[in-house]
Design a protein around this nucleic acid. Structure first.
Lengths: 226, 226
DNA sequence: TAGATTGTTAATCGATTAACAATC
DNA sequence: TAGATTGTTAATCGATTAACAATC
């Protein structure tokens, strides 16, 4: 193992997941020209324990001053830099269906460090057209283009059945990180990063909480009746 | 506090988050007419520790037989029932932009216990039209309709700036659970369920992992040179 | 100075993993 | 029977929260 690999501190995933929301709030405060910000203030805005925020910020390498707090603009820039969002990374999107198109239309994306340069699909109706300004090309042209463009980030928005085989194609052509919107667990070679964005996992929480809530109110009504 | 409230076991969120993926795999296996399934098999498919799956299933009330495993179909139905996905719940969607439209087009949705019956927007170009078969109405008609239709689940896909005020409108009209796609922390009255679906939080993990990976390879190259 | 806030160490909490008996 | 698998209890691990000294 190289020295570099040894020394990389692995930041906990929950922390990485929270950093973007700090960025968001900080940007707003910076625009309002608020010079300093405290963890208490961030915590109020996001409903997160201030101590936790302080730890997160420390992990991202930011430092503040006792009593004063953090310099808003500076902190925002530090976090952006830490996430690598200061200069957007090129990405390709595979699967220009409704979800894929929606993502291509997300204008704020480049603000979050992602710049979708190309889309691929095998639907002849879509190939050759542009969606939200992004050209849609046939999957067959992927090998040639990815190599030439040195793109390492791929957004996968194809149906579940196609996801595995297409992910293999992506990896073969130099993609190192896959943002996977298909609701299946991809099998990828070691070292390849997969981030699953499974909408339905959220629905698991939401449905069962709502069911419990409704059941509770029902039972309460029954009790009133007896 | 009512007896019902006391006795409700609170299932850990990570478990609730995993149940949908079990459902998905089980449905596939059931279609392949596989009669029995073991936690080992589920774990292989999803890259999850079998013991953890066994615990999750137990929490959802499912039981299996030693050496044999679980009855595939039965287990699938139990989980579906536990999540309340056996008969789809009516929902409304607010914000028929690109993301909202994409969600309306998701055909598999009713399979996950959600049935979008109406959409609201204030864009005159969209009002009165149907998107993927779902009528889009003006926001002003929300109060009247929600009450009459007894809908308790709302999907919020409006821009961040509108999200707070619209969520208040939703709550005022009987919405009990909000699936929030706007990247802000909503302030809601106690008892209202909010499930945030913040795409950018995933990007936090992905970006920093990819950045670390690329940095590592760079450094390795440098070392080769020295 | 007094008080708010950072930075850090210790305590708690909860989820995952390991161990193992029960069982088909 | 032997071996695989469930069900459950104990051990581990890691994240969050609490406590508190340092500091502007």
């Amino acid at each position: 193992m190289s020295k570099a690999q040894e020394t990389i501190k692995s930041i906990p995933e929950p922390t990485l997941r929270r950093l973007p929301s700090y960025c968001q709030v900080l940007l707003g405060l910076a625009e309002q020209e608020q010079e300093y910000v405290s963890c208490t203030q961030l915590g109020d805005a996001l409903h997160i324990d201030p101590t936790l925020i302080r730890k997160d910020l420390a992990l991202a390498g930011a430092t503040g001053r006792p009593k004063v707090g953090y310099v808003t603009k500076e902190l925002h820039q530090q976090l952006e830099h830490f996430l690598g969002w200061n200069n957007a990374r090129d990405a390709v999107l595979i699967g220009a269906g409704s979800l894929g198109s929606a993502l291509m239309g997300y204008k704020a994306f480049d603000q979050y460090g992602v710049n979708i340069v190309l889309a691929f699909d095998h639907d002849p109706d879509k190939i050759g057209k542009k969606i939200h300004g992004i050209p849609v090309l046939p999957l067959t042209r992927m090998p040639n283009l990815l190599e030439r463009m040195k793109v390492h980030l791929g957004i996968l928005t194809v149906p579940a059945d196609d996801a595995q085989s297409i992910s293999e194609l992506m990896v073969m052509n130099g993609i190192l990180a896959i943002w996977n919107f298909a609701p299946i667990a991809l099998k990828v070679p070691e070292g390849i990063i997969v981030q699953n964005e499974d909408l339905f996992s959220s629905l698991g929480i939401l449905s069962s909480k709502l069911a419990a809530l409704l059941k509770r109110t029902e039972t309460d009504h029954e009790e009133v009746l007896t």
